[in-house]
């Protein structure tokens, strides 16, 4: 479903801040894979997701989604294949637009936007039902501005929007990192539910090793812009947090696991 071949990306080339973020990254996802991605700061997790989404163009390598080469497609054209939820809850919705308008925008992803009315009556009824499924009471607030929602509510709405068109690929970029633990757990459960219901191929970046183990059918650890560890199937089910810390020490060649990984 997703094939990344020898991806390379260097930021700020030729300056003191030069940073090789991706370096010969290879990764292939099968249809229906739910892959959790962990790694220390600067390992290239978010960079990989942004490369796939097309936030900027990679320096070399190629990106194929369902056999289509999207390496040189601009971000808005790749959106046809991809649903995204960001770390910052502010980033996934248009704050000055109504909840139903946000959903209507997402419902037209990958289509030409014409001079037809931006939202129809039947859509409204559908959205009400979808929002009811979230159990957050949003079904009665269709015309509220998205900017009035809490972080958790926004992430839930963004998830709904991301899945609305059944994308070939769902990218979750630490989408619970900015939420309190209780809300984060709710949003994660919702993510699981949405991925399962729609059979979405998913890449989920997380800083939380327990979450990385508990979710998905495959886990990859990134280090230095590459995939360093790749565990799936029964092996992944047996993984524990100490196992992961061991693996990380081996990969990084140091006893000290990244602070942020230890903390989570």
């Amino acid at each position: 479903m997703l094939e990344l071949k020898r991806l390379c990306k260097t930021f700020n080339r030729g300056t003191v801040n030069e940073k090789q973020a991706l370096c010969g990254l290879d990764l292939t996802l099968k249809d229906g894979d739910f892959v959790t991605v962990i790694g220390g700061n600067g390992a290239g997790k978010s960079t990989m997701l942004n490369a796939v989404a097309g936030t900027w163009m990679v320096d070399s390598g190629s990106i194929l989604i369902d056999g289509v080469d999207v390496t040189h497609l601009p971000e808005h054209k790749r959106a046809k294949f991809i649903g995204r939820v960001f770390q910052d809850p502010m980033m996934g919705t248009a704050p000055t637009m109504q909840i139903e308008e946000n959903l209507a925008l997402a419902a037209r992803r990958g289509q030409r936007r014409s001079l037809r009315w931006g939202i129809t009556k039947t859509e409204r009824a559908d959205y009400r039902e979808l929002l009811r499924g979230l159990g957050l009471g949003l079904e009665d607030r269709l015309t509220s501005k998205a900017g009035l929602l809490s972080g958790g509510q926004r992430q839930a709405l963004t998830l709904l929007m991301a899945a609305l068109k059944r994308p070939k690929l769902l990218l979750l970029d630490e989408h619970t990192a900015a939420l309190d633990p209780k809300t984060a757990a709710k949003v994660l459960a919702l993510s699981d539910q949405i991925v399962e219901e729609n059979g979405l191929t998913t890449l989920m970046v997380t800083h939380n090793m327990r979450d990385a183990i508990a979710h998905g059918n495959r886990l990859i650890m990134m280090y230095d812009g590459r995939v360093a560890v790749d565990v799936s199937g029964e092996d992944k089910k047996r993984l524990t947090v100490p196992d992961l810390l061991d693996l990380f020490s081996k990969v990084s060649g140091s006893d000290e696991a990244d602070d942020k990984m230890l903390l989570s």
């Binding site: 971000e75 808005h76 959106a79 980033m91 248009a94 637009m97 037209r108 992803r109 990958g110």
Partner: peptide
């Protein structure tokens, strides 16, 4: 309107 409200989100929703 979406572009003015949140350009990042707009591109993620396929808006040029």
């Amino acid at each position: 309107r979406a572009t003015g409200s949140n350009a990042n989100m707009s591109r993620a929703q396929g808006i040029d």
